[in-house]
Amino acid sequence: MPRRESGHGSGRDPSAREVFEVLVRENADRTMIYIRSITRGAAEADDVFQESMLVAFRRLGDFDRSRPFGPWVRGIAARVALARARRAAQQPIIDPSLLDAVSSQMTQWDAIDRIDFESVLQKLRACMDALTRDQQECVQLAYRQDIPMREVAAALGANEETIKKRLQRARASLAECLRAHGALA
């Protein structure tokens, strides 16, 4: 049985790695939000994040330092997510144009730093508090806890179509609320 060698990869410039980690750390939250937007479930999102960051590190020489890091790494994440979806033969496949559109939506937050981005999340929490109780339950179970739709429906004693409608209305309400608070363009 082959043993995996422990320790650091030989020859890698440690400074490049450290700076890369700084960039990732600064952008990790927003990158994960993007990945959660385009994937199904937390485990899948974590896998896409890790794989994307490894790809990004290997391609670091291609990164144009005059441009922001966020969109570049989101482009890599989109390709990784698509490739994984194809490998898993998920039907229907994720729509590539939609991935770009979501990434474009995120550019509004690229210019703000990690600390300021926390205020966006605080506004989201305030907006969620304004949802109806039914919507809050759906959002909590389906999005926060990653519970499959049919289980959410069973847990709340409603059919799946009702749950989908509630989630759709919740998302629309949240978008409107975030816009009113200046957190969404």
């Binding site: 385009i38 496949i93 499959p148 759709q168 998302r171």
Partner: peptide
């Protein structure tokens, strides 16, 4: 199980990117 995930038919929905983003923000 996750019918509001960004799949092909969402491309026709003008709100799909924004809704996907909201979903990602919450999740």
């Amino acid at each position: 199980d996750f019918p509001d995930a960004p799949v092909a038919h969402d491309a026709d929905d003008a709100h799909a990117p924004e809704h996907a983003l909201i979903r990602g923000l919450i999740a």
